[in-house]
Computed example of a mutant assay.
Amino acid sequence: MALGGTALAVYLSLQQPAPPRTSTADTARPQRPATESPAPIDERDVAALAPRRVKVTADRGALVELAWSLPGRARDYPVVVQRSPVQAGEQPITALDQGATSARLAGLDPGTGYCFLVGVPLRISEDSTVAWSKPACIRGAKARPTHR
């Protein structure tokens, strides 16, 4: 699972733009042939899988601990954490195991404010679908507005 999670993190980190978004894709139905567009998924379905109550449970400067809850069906998917800002060469996405409800993120700048989003990747493709949480910010950071 770690190798697959690393590949997922690298793929997601290369996606532009970095702000969280939801797209319309369906993971509940069987995959269609590549020549057909995937069937749209209702944004309510994506929102129903988004992690809830994301909280920073410890801020130790270079190390931050996060915790959240997952809706029942979301426990069947891997989880990712996106942090902002990131320095050049850093990965903004940390891949976690399926159903994860906490994370420890190290290597942060103790003097910088950060915002964290927790996501459940539903489809990984050119138009990835990730059910994102609301942001949790520390040290005076402000979340960027999202356009859905």
Rank of each mutant, 00 (worst) to 15 (best):
L3G: 03
G5W: 01
A7M: 03
A9L: 01
L12Y: 04
S13W: 05
L14P: 00
L14D: 00
Q15I: 05
Q15P: 00
Q16W: 03
Q16S: 03
Q16L: 08
P17Y: 00
A18E: 09
P19M: 06
R21C: 09
A25V: 09
A25R: 14
D26C: 14
D26N: 15
T27L: 15
T27V: 15
A28F: 08
A28Q: 07
R29L: 15
R29E: 12
R32E: 06
A34I: 02
T35D: 04
A39P: 01
A39Q: 07
A39K: 02
P40W: 10
D42Y: 13
E43H: 08
E43I: 09
E43A: 14
R44F: 14
D45V: 13
D45F: 13
V46Q: 04
A47I: 10
L49A: 12
L49I: 06
P51W: 10
P51R: 06
R52Q: 15
R52D: 03
R52H: 12
R53D: 15
D59C: 06
A62Y: 05
A62W: 07
A62R: 12
L63C: 00
V64P: 00
V64S: 03
A67H: 01
L70D: 03
L70E: 02
P71F: 05
G72V: 04
G72M: 03
R73I: 03
A74V: 05
A74G: 05
A74T: 02
P78W: 04
P78D: 07
V81N: 10
Q82D: 02
R83M: 10
S84M: 05
G89A: 06
G89P: 00
G89E: 03
G89F: 06
I93F: 09
I93Y: 05
T94N: 01
D97Q: 11
Q98N: 01
Q98C: 01
A100L: 11
T101V: 12
S102F: 10
A103W: 04
R104S: 15
R104T: 14
L105G: 09
A106N: 04
L108A: 11
L108K: 07
D109P: 02
D109K: 10
P110W: 11
P110V: 09
P110E: 11
G111N: 11
T112Y: 03
Y114W: 01
L117R: 13
L117P: 00
L117K: 06
V118I: 13
G119D: 12
V120S: 14
V120G: 14
R123E: 09
I124P: 00
S125C: 05
D127G: 07
S128T: 10
S128Y: 08
V130R: 04
V130D: 06
W132G: 10
W132K: 11
K134Q: 15
C137M: 11
I138S: 04
K142E: 13
K142G: 01
A143K: 07
R144S: 11
H147K: 04
R148T: 08
R148I: 05
